[in-house]
Nucleic acid binder design. Structure first.
Lengths: 214, 214
DNA sequence: GTGTACTATTTTGTACACAGAATTCATAGT
DNA sequence: ACTATGAATTCTGTGTACAAAATAGTACAC
């Protein structure tokens, strides 16, 4: 088996994002580098490199002399992020090969239909959602765009745990995914793009009430 | 006067981008951290932090054990980047306050008209172009979007010096900027957005022939 | 009790040191 | 001449150390 040979900074970044998903960190409070480094069993150097990466993705804030902290959540920022991702995913879909999209549409539909049990682990649910979006964008040739979408979505992870434990939104989400898939299957790329955009707008509004109003 | 008190990593990043604009670096060749650090008069630590930031913005590539290098330019990547920025700036414009846009339209027109001498320094010309786009987007309330646009544009700087020394493209660019400004002045936000998108597409095509076909 | 100056402590930002991986170069074998 | 092997070297990735800035705490004046 190929043993793990990636820079520590990347592994640390991934671990921090995992902890973020679990809601381990309270937003706004400063990160103590020495303490966190000790907890992770690494030195401050690669930890700081990971923190700088995350700050570039908007997950963290930093200020001179005060180090890093998880950026506070806000309805406003969440709306901003949703607008951005909606535009980027729309672009990705528009510029994908229609033939390929049609080919994967059935699989998209299948994935959207058998969404996991609402009682399942939060992580499972998110992974399922990610899987759907990844497949949807798998036909996009624009590598940079895909990277950018991944990066922006990392910044949205701070909001992920807020939705935990409710199933009504999940079903709506699944229904909307079905609609996109069906439109793709019928070859209506423009309508599908529009439905995808609506999906993001609706998903945003579903979340809004859960975000503390700062 | 307020003395410069920013993290070294940011100052280094800016300096590297400046040198990139000047075409100091040849794409694809590895960066020697120790040598570059010595040249800049700093230690490797903040330099690496700057390199990691630039890698996150797509200016640099990195691979395990081989460090960083300036990513090679390619027609394909340039097209990808233009598509992205076009979509993002369009979004920014669409979500700006129309009243505000109308108010700044005359200034946009003025800026577009007195574009600098084609014989001027390359840096002057770019700054002028940036100024126009910054003003155009100054009404956008989506902070994250503005940051993202800045970041993606940083990745396009590798292409900036390729356009140096030709004036025909410059005039076309200016003419298109005028058109956007005039549409905004007339209150046709949607048409202006479309014109802006066209501007990016046209600008891309103007550049294409200058990019070595890898 | 409130505010201010000063000290002590914590913590970041930067420099430096070291181990190991990658590359280069030389040598030997075919 | 060309490939393969191995040593030497270079450079990155990570750990450690130190200095300066920020924060917290304390004493003191009012």
């Amino acid at each position: 088996m190929p043993i793990e040979r990636r820079p520590l900074r990347e592994q640390i970044r991934d671990e921090l994002l995992r902890r973020l998903d679990r809601g381990d960190f309270s937003a706004g409070t400063d990160i103590n580098e020495a303490a966190l480094a000790g907890e992770l069993g690494v030195s401050r150097t690669p930890l700081r490199e990971a923190l700088i990466t995350l700050a570039g993705e908007g997950v963290l804030e930093s200020s001179q002399g005060r180090g890093f902290r998880f950026a506070p959540v806000s309805k406003r920022e969440f709306r901003e992020l949703c607008e951005i991702v909606a535009a980027l995913e729309s672009l990705a879909l528009e510029t994908s090969d229609p033939g390929y999209l049609r080919k994967i549409a059935p699989e998209l539909l299948r994935l959207a239909r058998d969404f996991p049990d609402p009682v399942a682990e939060q992580q499972i649910i998110e992974r399922h959602d990610d899987e759907w979006h990844d497949l949807l964008l798998s036909g996009c040739q624009n590598e940079r765009l895909l990277d950018l979408i991944t990066s922006v979505k990392a910044g949205m992870r701070r909001y992920a745990h807020l939705i935990a434990g409710d199933d009504a939104p999940l079903e709506r989400e699944a229904a909307e995914h079905c609609e996109v898939a069906e439109l793709l299957m019928a070859g209506h790329l423009d309508k599908a793009t529009e439905a995808l955009r609506d999906n993001w707008v609706n998903g945003m509004e579903r979340m809004m009430s859960r975000i503390p109003s700062a």
